[in-house]
Design a protein around this nucleic acid. Sequence first.
RNA 1: GCCCCCGUAGUUCAGUGGAUAGAACGGCGGCCUUCUAAGCCGCAUGUCGCAGGUUCGAAUCCUGCCGGGGGUACCA
Length: 691
Amino acid sequence: MRPIPFPGVWGTSTTVCYQIANEQLAGELEAATVGLSKKEAKRLVQERVRERAQAIAEEIATWLSARGDFARVEAVNGYLNIVYDTARFANEVLRAVLTAGPDYGRGAPRGERVMVEYSQPNTHKAFHVGHLRNVCLGNALSRILRFAGFDVLEANYIGDIGLHVIKCLWCYLRFHRGEEPPREQRGRWLGEIYAEADRRLSYRQEVVELLNELAQADPVFVQALDRMLKELWREHKVGEDIAYLLGQIAHGREIKPEAFYDGQTIVKFWPIVGRQLEHELAEARATAEQDGEEETLQRVRQLEEWYDRWRRLAATLDWWPHVPQWEREVRETFQRWERKDPEFVQLWEETRTWSLEEFYRIYEELDVHFDVWFFESEVEEEGRQIVRELLERGIAEISDGLPVVKIDEKLGLEKETYRTLPILRSDGTTLYSTKDLALTKRKFEQYQVDRAIWVVDVRQTLYLQQIFKVMELWGFQQAAKCYHLAYETVMLPSGAMSSRLGNVVLYEDVARQVLARALEIIEEKNPSLPPEVKAAVARQVGLGSLKYGMLSRDNNRVIVFDIEEALSFEGHAAPYIQYAHARACRILEKVETFPEGPYALEDLTQEEIDLIEQIALFPDEVQRAADEYKPLVVANFVYELAKRFNEFYRLCPVLQAPEPQRSARLAMVAAARQTLANGLALLGIVAPEVM
RNA sequence: GCCCCCGUAGUUCAGUGGAUAGAACGGCGGCCUUCUAAGCCGCAUGUCGCAGGUUCGAAUCCUGCCGGGGGUACCA
């Protein structure tokens, strides 16, 4: 059963006649097709089934028509279409919406508690648009599940400790001690310190990575190697290292930073590499100008990318000799955390707050509110305890000094499926898994959840399956009701976001831009509104647009975040839907007394039927969105509803219509407005009354 | 190597067993003395990656291949 897929006809369609026809004909057809070619047999079967389905449909149609419950019952192409008595059904729909109001579409309580864990931001790191996708998804899903009838707990899990925090604080103490960041920007400032730490610590690796890439992907570079190394010899006489470089590059083998005799060889070599790249780039550009072919253009782009990387790394060449020392210092800093050095713990607490304050501001702005707050720092000890228990019970074991759970082996799987999960570092410090095991146990025991949902990046799919399986091995039945809602990465037109490379789009920056743009537009569209209303509407539209952009794509699809697109408020976007709502409000506010039903809905126009039909679908769509964990279903629904409302709006005057049509249309507008508001609310988007 | 995701209009994406595959953006042309034009109407563009299979019926399910992205024991 599904809606009749034609505009202007309101009812349901069923394909049951095909199934019946199939069953009836099964034996008969087998006999009839003996001796025919495969193609002929197929055509015969096709024809016969279709004929029989049509005959059955006609029979049922006659029978149903005689009963007179429906406006019309017809048999078309083997489908049985039941057309509703619009006046009756439309009145039922409108009454349902207008009496339930904000509760229209709400499902009956299911008596099941579900915890949705989402927005797991790391303190001491930047909050960017990738995090925004997670928050929007998790929050919309929570709202949908709650509305659908579940008892929902929204949980946040803050990564306030771990290697990233240690790196950040090391960098702070080593290079920025005593600096006072601007009060409102402390979280962001810390994120920059972290990015710097990351850049410093991975410096050698990055330099060598670029060299390795050039050695493998740029034949011109490899050809010039002799000359470059001769130059290096003339200037610096580092024989062993020259031999090493020559050997590795010529044979396409990986260069390793620790293999050099002279700690300064790379520092000396780097300017030579740069000159070579400059030379290659100039040549490639000249060629491209001449032939303009795609291949040469591609070569230019590639060289530009390499040269940019070279230049960025050249700017901090003096870092090279220090990296091993810095790595030691980071390990020492980790030790300070492990032994709870009071001075260090105090610094951690203070800086942690800087990030948290920023997060709280963002959640407030996005109207996201958590019932439960977990912090990684709180579950470290519990996690260690669990590792001990798992080891004692033989679920975990020590392999090469590392506590692991060999999941496939424990489950008796032949094929490599869940592999092996490390659950504690060999030096006794905790891993993400250590803490996640403790946290999941808490969800089951302390919060008594029947179902647990993790809204987490798709890259952690295997990892989360591992956690679920370990919980199962450990004896938790609830493990079967663990679900990973995986979503794809948010990328930039320039590629993946990387704070190290400095190409991240911060939430704060985007939000400010979008809000400013929204204000600009409302200033232009509706200048007569009072300033405070303009500001409020700009907020609702700007944030709505940002959220809708994150929700109107399926989870398993990469979003390429384009700021221009985010700033565009036309077409398939939140403002389109919000605008339909504002238009409806405008009509309704001009009515003194709202008419009581039932309404005169006998001769509806196509636009009216389409509108009411869509409104009627809402409760089912809410359930579907909840069952499939897909806010996208609601996002599509409200867009379609707004579209139908806008079409209705154009062709069906309401206030000027004669009675009783005026009352009927007013009821439709009120029902559409309510359903739009309810649907948008499920996405965490406000429906403005004016725009 | 093994596992997961994606491939649909020029572009970004809906549609996951049913009738003639839909929107938006971009392009072109129309509609504001009538409830807000952030809107509406019209025109153009498709080997639904390729090849088989299952089915009365496949963009949708299965198998293989091609192309892109991701994961794969001490990152989170």
